[in-house]
Amino acid sequence: MTFFSHIIAIIRKDLLAELRTIEISSAVIFFALIVLVIFNFAFELQVGSQEIQTLGPGVLWVAFAFSSMIGLGRSISAEKDKGSLEGLLLTPVDRGAIYLGKVASNFIFTSIMEAITLVAFVILFNPTSLSLAVIPYIILGTLGLSAIGVLLAAVAAGTLIREVMLPVLLFPVSIPLFSAGVNLTRNAFESRPFSDDAGSFGLLVAFDVIFLVVAFLLFEYVVEE
């Protein structure tokens, strides 16, 4: 129970601190909206057009990827800047609980950001056949991104060029996640049967499980000197 109470305390602390200022959330949401608008101009996407069904999933996941990067980077670097991560490491808390707490709070933030981005996407592009089936895929993608993102953000936070280092580390590792996420989202956009992309679903689930376990085990070595 101690393990879970520590996770909950970390989530509560992160949510409380963010809700006080909404600094990171507002920046992340603004960035996601900018990405959507830029793609709108770049591809000259017409509201309700067929191109939206083809390009929309990619546009959506690019917005998710870039904006979640900001949130992930800040969530760990803010702890490092003030030394509060060391304060946390001084306590007898299992490092795995710290990791899972940070993953959970990032997952919550990113999910809220993605929900707003999704609503903005629907308003801007009005896709004709967007189904709710897209939601579990986005949730799985967000979980995977948070799982590996927290670990790599902790690695990047220990370097002098952390703002550059996080995307350099995170994007290559996350290619299978984005690939599966885009495929599954397109599947949902085109209302194709799930069996058409069961492989991508399996890849997404495997990515989540593997990186949750690996990052959980490695986090201690990354955050401790």
Binding site: S5, A17, R20, K82, S84, G87, L88, L90, P92
Partner: peptide, 19 residues
């Protein structure tokens, strides 16, 4: 200080007490 800027002194101490 190891403190969280956006939490009150009480919230900071309660958080660490929980930890």
């Amino acid at each position: 200080t190891f403190l969280y800027d956006n939490l009150t002194a009480r919230e900071n101490l309660e958080f660490f007490a929980t930890m």
